[in-house]
Simulated assay, not measured.
Amino acid sequence: MLLAGIQTAVSLIYPPQCLGCGGLVGSDFGLCGTCWSGMSFISGTVCEGCGVPLPGEADGFRLECDSCLRHPRPWSQGRSALVYEGQGRKLVLALKHGDRTEIAQTAAVWLERAAQPMLQNDPLICPVPLHWTRLLKRKYNQSAVLADALARRAGLQHCPDLLRRIRKTPALEGKTRDQRYQLLGSAIGAHPGRLNRIRGRSVLIVDDVMTSGATLCACTDACLRAGAADVRVAVLARVTQT
Rank of each mutant, 00 (worst) to 15 (best):
D148V: 07
E57L: 15
G5A: 02
L216K: 04
A4K: 07
R89K: 14
G56Q: 04
G30V: 06
L130F: 10
G155R: 05
V25D: 08
P123S: 05
L195G: 04
E64L: 15
G38P: 14
N141W: 01
P15V: 00
E173H: 09
H97K: 01
A226C: 06
R164L: 12
T133H: 11
P55V: 11
G51K: 09
D161N: 10
E112Y: 02
L91H: 07
M1K: 10
S37G: 13
T169W: 00
G49R: 01
P72N: 15
E48Q: 11
A214K: 03
F29R: 15
W132A: 02
C65K: 02
Q77G: 10
L95T: 13
D66C: 11
A226K: 11
K168L: 08
R194G: 02
E112Q: 12
Y14C: 14
A190L: 03
Q241C: 06
L146H: 01
L63V: 13
M118E: 02
E85W: 05
L91M: 13
P127C: 12
G30M: 08
L124P: 00
R152D: 03
E48R: 05
P129Y: 00
L224G: 02
A229S: 05
C217A: 14
A171R: 01
L54K: 07
L195W: 10
M1P: 04
V239K: 14
T8H: 10
